[in-house]
Design a protein around this nucleic acid. Structure first.
Lengths: 218, 218
DNA sequence: CCGTGTGAAATTATTCACAGCC
DNA sequence: GGCTGTGAATAATTTCACACGG
């Protein structure tokens, strides 16, 4: 379930603030969702709440972490040592959550040998070796859009079974390989859509009925 | 509709390759979705296709761009000049699509005066002035998680009506303000979940029935 | 009482399937 | 003949509402 990481962060946040117990309503407020959704999602993991009381924060953190596979460390490779790749390497949130970047790969020989966030940059030709030796299952793709498919094919061939794609391109992977895509500009475009809606409704408001356009579905 | 930007990119990609017309099936393959979904989504914009032929690529690009509000340029502020902020400033995909970063803001006086990707870094105290003078509606948040809410409040107060939040924190905005969140580590956690599923099913495969666990819903 | 866990209802999204048009 | 546009069917998700347990 794609919302578990969100709950997990809210729980960890509150645990650090010393909170020991939370109700579904409190967790819902912290995560920004409906409380019934929280209860239904959590009930899939088992009955970890106490009626009349709520959920034990530490225990729930442990259960969600186990469910998500975060009790073990995962080795990853980061492909692409450009701006985005470097930002991702420096992004603390990965290491904090058990994702170790075993190596950074790049096609540009000039980048090979650099160290980014304490991780060495290797040439892409080393992909097969590194993936094998470091037992890498997850790759983070931060390459130009037109190189993404080619790189992904090669990673899958080398044994990667999950790809997180930051490249602005749709890529295809074989059955059995997991793929998630984060598109930085698509998110902005969605916001622009709502901004434009706002402008249109402001125009309509000149002498016309102001339509309630907030809270539109995604 | 949150899929329009995806279609738009596929269309632009093909237009640059010289393609003049596409069917819903071709577009579906390029965007990685079902063709009926494409037709239904596009029918919301109007009847821009030709039966028996398909969609005129250039015309459809224009229609989707208009719908998304991409025919005008949007001024944005990028808040946070750390690694992620710098990567976002350098990320070409924003400017390409009509999003101009009017200024970068940071709380750290040491960063003020720097130039990142040709954009000057100002102190956060300048937020109100810049947002007013540059008519900024959209803010990109790349600050530490514990500062996110405070910064968002201030931006909204200054007149920002859309926030794209890259900070690892859930933030609340008033009714009428649009908010999108991109969480880099959540995506990895979702992949870890599937990786763990794979490990579990591999274990079961030892002498047991191999369950088909690929293609699970998100 | 309070809050979980969960069937049932409502809503939303996706896919099918085909009439209509080029 | 091929492909769009779209009602109808189906599936998935979300929300309601309440029985049950602490």
């Amino acid at each position: 379930m794609a919302r578990l990481p969100l709950y997990l962060r809210a729980l960890i946040d509150r645990a650090e603030a010393g909170v020991e117990s939370m109700s579904s309503g409190e967790l819902a407020a912290a995560a920004g969702v409906n409380s019934a959704k929280i209860r239904k999602d959590l009930s899939y993991l088992g009955s970890y709440g106490t009626r009349g009381v709520g959920y034990d924060v530490e225990y729930l953190i442990a259960q969600i972490s186990r469910e998500l596979g975060l009790t073990q460390d995962w080795s990853t490779v980061l492909v692409g040592a450009g701006n985005l790749g470097q930002a991702l390497a420096n992004y603390g949130g990965f290491a904090d959550r058990g994702f170790r970047i075993a190596a950074i790969l790049d096609a540009d020989p000039a980048k090979v040998g650099m160290t980014v966030a304490g991780v060495e940059v290797f040439h892409q030709d080393q992909a097969e070796r590194i993936i094998r030796e470091e037992d890498v299952a997850i790759a983070i793709l931060a390459v130009p859009g037109d190189a993404a498919q080619e790189v992904a094919d090669r990673l899958v061939e080398a044994g990667v079974t999950s790809i997180l794609n930051f490249a602005p391109a749709v890529i295809q992977v074989p059955e059995g390989v997991s793929l998630r895509k984060v598109d930085l500009s698509i998110e902005l475009q969605i916001l622009a859509y709502y901004e434009q809606r706002r402008l249109v409704s402001d125009d309509l408001a000149n002498g016309a009925v102001r339509r309630h356009l907030d809270g539109l579905p995604d």
